[in-house]
Simulated assay, not measured.
Amino acid sequence: MKKISSALSVLALTAASFSTQAESINYYVIAKQATPFQIAGDNNQQSGIVTDIVKAVFEDSSYQINYHTYPFNRMISQLEAGGEPNWITYGSPNWGKVQSENLSEIPIYTVKHVLVSTRESNLQFHSIQDMHKKIIVLLHGFDYPQLLPYFEKGEIEELRVKDYQAAFRIIHKFPEFAAFVEMESRVKYNLAQLNQEQSDFRIQPFRSVIPDYPIYLAFDPQMNPNTQDFINRRLKTLKANGQIDDIIQRYF
């Protein structure tokens, strides 16, 4: 009986030790709209630029990644309510709210926005005045303060759509009046996913309106400081050895 009791005590101590060492990381993924940064799937099939970087950060470590996938607005609501402990997603100082409050020490990617029209369109973009009395198509849930004054004054019409397929359909339907504003990387990735030829579209820089900016990993403001230090150290190593650049190249 004493031997059994001793064995159980050893198992309990082992389990407690493992529990202490295997700290959970709660990684939040945006469903559908965040490709190629986050491509939602089952736990073993999660992918995307940010997701692959997060996986690389915790590879061969004692941390366990738990995935939480939500539509964008619901994810933000969850995080604003506190989220699960030690949560991670991605963000930028430009985005505000929980996606800007506590960021990694180094950026992981530089975002560039473009204006997308069809090849048949005669739209030549030089300044925002070229969109006067025209339609800018945007995805639901993504807001751009730089465009808001033009929408509010009625100088440019805002049209929201649920996905990339709808955006490309609209600009094909109204080639002389409508253009889609979005991140260049996401446009090119989703054109490929929808079997659309990039040569059928006119993709013009939009940085005169929305300047290029970096994105970072965004952390729980209450994250364990040791965990945050670990992530920042690993990110610097991954950047220095070229692994972050290799991950980005997989998607283009």
Rank of each mutant, 00 (worst) to 15 (best):
R160I: 11
N122T: 09
G154M: 07
N73A: 14
S127M: 06
L217F: 01
Q196W: 02
I247A: 06
L13P: 00
K173C: 02
Q78S: 14
A179M: 07
Q228L: 13
K188S: 04
A12Y: 01
S9I: 12
F72S: 04
K97H: 09
V111F: 01
N241A: 02
V10N: 04
R202N: 14
N241D: 15
D229F: 00
V114P: 00
N190D: 05
R169K: 13
L238N: 08
R119Y: 08
Y109T: 08
V98K: 06
V209L: 12
F142I: 15
Y144D: 04
F72A: 09
T14V: 15
D212R: 11
E182G: 01
N86Y: 02
K162M: 11
P225G: 12
Q129M: 06
L139N: 06
R234A: 14
Y164R: 03
Q129S: 13
S121L: 05
N94Q: 12
F180T: 11
E155H: 06
I76P: 02
P175C: 07
I108C: 02
V98M: 07
F206M: 09
F72Q: 12
K134T: 13
H140Q: 15
Y150N: 06
S6F: 09
L79F: 10
A178S: 12
G82S: 11
A31I: 13
P93C: 01
Y150A: 03
Y216E: 02
S208W: 00
E105G: 07
E105S: 12
S62E: 13
V187K: 00
Q243P: 07
V10K: 01
S24W: 01
Q45L: 09
Q45M: 03
I210S: 01
F125K: 00
I231P: 00
E176F: 00
S92A: 11
Y63I: 03
T110L: 02
L194C: 07
A16M: 13
V137H: 14
I108K: 03
Y90R: 07
N195K: 08
